[in-house]
């Protein structure tokens, strides 16, 4: 039986579908038997769902203007 520590190490590989058939089977058997790891995996999925949105940043207006300004500069010197 896989250890709980092993489950926490391989949890992303499991979620990403990177475990082979047997590894997957053993992983699932552990999750069925261990409420803590089951909880851990649920929390990891929540982290993924949340941080995909919370991790996105928008540029400030000043940054946008700077990028546009440099593009105009580059285009006026090359033409």
């Amino acid at each position: 039986m896989l250890s709980c520590q092993h489950i926490t190490q391989k949890a992303s590989d499991y979620i990403e579908g990177k475990l082979n058939f047997w590894q997957r089977l053993k992983f699932r058997a552990h999750l069925r038997a261990c409420i803590h790891c089951d909880n851990f995996l649920r929390q990891l999925r929540l982290v993924i769902g949340y941080s995909s949105r919370a991790g996105h940043q928008c540029a400030s207006e000043a940054e946008v203007q700077q990028v546009l300004h440099r593009i105009r500069q580059a285009e006026s010197t090359s033409s």
Binding site: T8, G49, A54
Partner: peptide, 29 residues
């Protein structure tokens, strides 16, 4: 993985994950 101190010598949870009261992405957001 999680830090080693979370587990005992057999690799079983010593400090299992605590329950989260905010448990959907929307609540967290």
């Amino acid at each position: 993985g999680m830090p080693a101190e979370f587990f005992d010598e057999n690799g079983a949870w010593r400090e299992p994950p605590s329950d989260w009261h905010l448990d959907t992405p929307e609540q967290l957001l």
